[in-house]
Write a protein that binds this DNA or RNA. Sequence first.
DNA 1: TTTGCATACTTAGCATAGCTAATCATTAGC
DNA 2: GCTAATGATTAGCTATGCTAAGTATGCAAA
Lengths: 149, 149
Amino acid sequence: MKRKLGELRLEEVGRSLHSNAIHLLRDVRIEDSAMGIGPAQASALSVVVFGGPHSLNELAEVEQVRPPTMSRVVEALVGEGLVRREANSNDRRSVIISSTEKGTKIIHEGRSRREKRLIKLLSQLDADEIRCLGKASEILSRVLVAEHS
Amino acid sequence: MKRKLGELRLEEVGRSLHSNAIHLLRDVRIEDSAMGIGPAQASALSVVVFGGPHSLNELAEVEQVRPPTMSRVVEALVGEGLVRREANSNDRRSVIISSTEKGTKIIHEGRSRREKRLIKLLSQLDADEIRCLGKASEILSRVLVAEHS
DNA sequence: TTTGCATACTTAGCATAGCTAATCATTAGC
DNA sequence: GCTAATGATTAGCTATGCTAAGTATGCAAA
């Protein structure tokens, strides 16, 4: 009986987390227009800013798009001076995409605007509630990061 | 001193929640290709399935797109038999978009695939951790829902 | 070595999804 | 009843997704 209740709770928590993730990002996304670049460019640029230089194929895989799509996104970012596309000396077929200072600045500012908006929302909570969210977020990080590696 | 620590923690929690929301949705999104419709159509259809009938302008506002964009998305959904577009008898300029059975089925199945994937990830956690996530998710719901109303 | 296949990326061409400007129909205000 | 405001659509542009095909490089086996 206890097992069954546990399983029901697990499903309920999954549904709730999924729904909250959608609503949370829908809310903070409002700030993104200030970046002046589209969502695909912003997302790809974020990956190189926070995750360091990547090859085009790596970037496509992380972003869950096909290489031709990422090729064009990178082309646009290069044209805007937000990333560099450099040859890989170990394998000249491959290109290494890294962020410029301008690209890094845009992403950090954009991320900051999103986080400020979220933090403002959270600031209506009391200390116990914040602690609870912090603990939950740590648990979630562990599960989600494990999935990517 | 305690106040300062509290503020730092708040920011840290905000950053962490934001990052987790991104990674969570990036992960579950993998299941969406099975729906057979694009992300804009899926998202708009979800709104009418879970939120009931909406006018086109309401739908555009919820989805954070302009009316012409939503008009075309709805046109595609109508063509696929996933929503109905009916006249509003109170205001004949307005159209009411509601889901068909087919549309409702597609969204419920898609949502279920996403949730199953998330629940599988969560199932590696122990009961205390699930309880912690559940509590946090409730807190988050309260803050996020308040934002929309 | 060279022949041939695999790999990394790009190019070309198509579909979807975002926008603004302009249009049409209806409603609301005077 | 005029006029302005509102809800939706149409037209035409850009951005972003795809597959198929092309180019350049790397690797392996004859």
